[in-house]
């Protein structure tokens, strides 16, 4: 891989390996993927940001708090909208 690859441009299979979270983190991202209806691309996106957050903290392994922060950036209203039932359109 070229030396100037960043987390954002990393191929998906590689980021899954590099950003494999610990047990708690895996549970969180699984739960979030169902509640927030994450697509596969959304899942990889969250992993990329979580990997950057772990790198900024100097940690080898991606932990639950990194994943939590990455998920929090994922469109504050978009995430909420996905989780909430839609009101009737006659507003």
């Amino acid at each position: 891989m070229p030396a100037s690859t960043t987390n954002a441009t990393c191929p998906a299979s590689l980021i899954e390996e590099a950003a494999a979270p610990d047990a708690e983190g895996t549970a969180l991202i699984r739960h979030a993927a169902e509640t927030m209806r994450l697509s596969a691309r959304g899942f990889h996106r969250t992993l990329r940001v979580a990997r950057t957050l772990a790198d900024l903290d100097g940690e080898e392994r991606v932990r639950r708090l990194h994943l939590a922060e990455a998920l929090s950036y994922r469109g504050r209203t978009e995430g909420v909208a996905a989780a909430r039932p839609m009101p009737s359109p006659t507003a």
Binding site: H44, T46, V49, R74, G75, T77, E78, A91
Partner: peptide, 25 residues
């Protein structure tokens, strides 16, 4: 304001939801 950091190349926008408030009908 809120900062919405998009993590992917494919979704530069994450819009605020387009639902009205219940009061503002």
């Amino acid at each position: 304001g809120s900062i919405c950091a998009s993590k992917s190349p494919r979704s530069p926008l994450s819009t605020s939801s387009c639902r009205r408030r219940r009061k503002a009908r």
